[in-house]
Simulated assay, not measured.
Amino acid sequence: MKKTICLLVSLLTLLSYQSVVNGQEVVRKSYAYFSLEPEIVTNYLGSSARKLGFVRVSIELMLEDPDFLEAAEHHSPLMRAATIEVFGSQPEEKVKSLTGREDIRRSCLEKLQELMLKETGSKMIKDVIFTKYLYFQS
Rank of each mutant, 00 (worst) to 15 (best):
L8M: 04
V9G: 01
V9W: 00
L11G: 07
L11R: 04
T13R: 01
L14H: 01
L14M: 09
L15V: 08
L15Q: 01
L15C: 05
L15K: 01
L15A: 10
S16K: 01
Y17K: 00
Q18V: 12
V20M: 03
N22I: 00
N22M: 08
G23R: 00
Q24G: 00
E25C: 00
E25H: 05
E25V: 03
K29V: 15
K29I: 14
S30W: 02
S30A: 09
S30V: 14
A32G: 14
F34V: 05
E37P: 04
E39F: 05
V41E: 08
V41Q: 10
T42D: 06
T42P: 00
Y44M: 03
Y44T: 01
Y44P: 00
G46F: 02
G46D: 03
S47P: 06
S47T: 11
S48M: 08
A49C: 02
A49H: 05
A49N: 08
R50F: 06
K51M: 10
L52N: 04
L52S: 08
G53H: 06
F54H: 06
V57G: 04
V57N: 05
S58C: 07
E60N: 02
L61M: 13
L63W: 11
E64V: 07
D65V: 14
P66L: 15
F68N: 12
L69D: 07
E70C: 10
E70Q: 13
A71N: 15
E73N: 15
H74P: 02
S76I: 08
S76M: 12
P77R: 11
P77A: 15
L78S: 13
L78E: 13
A81V: 05
A82M: 12
T83R: 05
I84S: 04
E85M: 13
E85R: 14
E85T: 11
E85W: 10
V86L: 08
S89D: 04
Q90D: 08
Q90H: 06
Q90V: 12
Q90Y: 05
P91D: 12
E92R: 09
E92A: 12
E93D: 06
K94N: 04
L98P: 02
L98F: 10
L98W: 09
T99L: 12
T99G: 06
T99P: 01
G100T: 06
G100A: 03
D103L: 15
R105E: 06
R106F: 14
R106D: 13
R106M: 15
C108N: 05
L109C: 09
E110M: 13
E110F: 04
E110H: 11
E110Y: 01
K111N: 06
K111L: 11
Q113V: 04
Q113L: 07
L115D: 14
M116D: 12
M116R: 10
M116A: 12
L117C: 04
L117N: 10
E119P: 01
T120C: 09
G121V: 07
G121L: 07
G121R: 09
S122R: 11
S122T: 12
K123H: 09
K123G: 11
K123S: 08
D127H: 11
D127R: 10
D127Q: 14
V128D: 09
V128T: 14
V128P: 07
I129E: 02
T131S: 07
Y133H: 10
L134F: 07
F136H: 11
F136A: 13
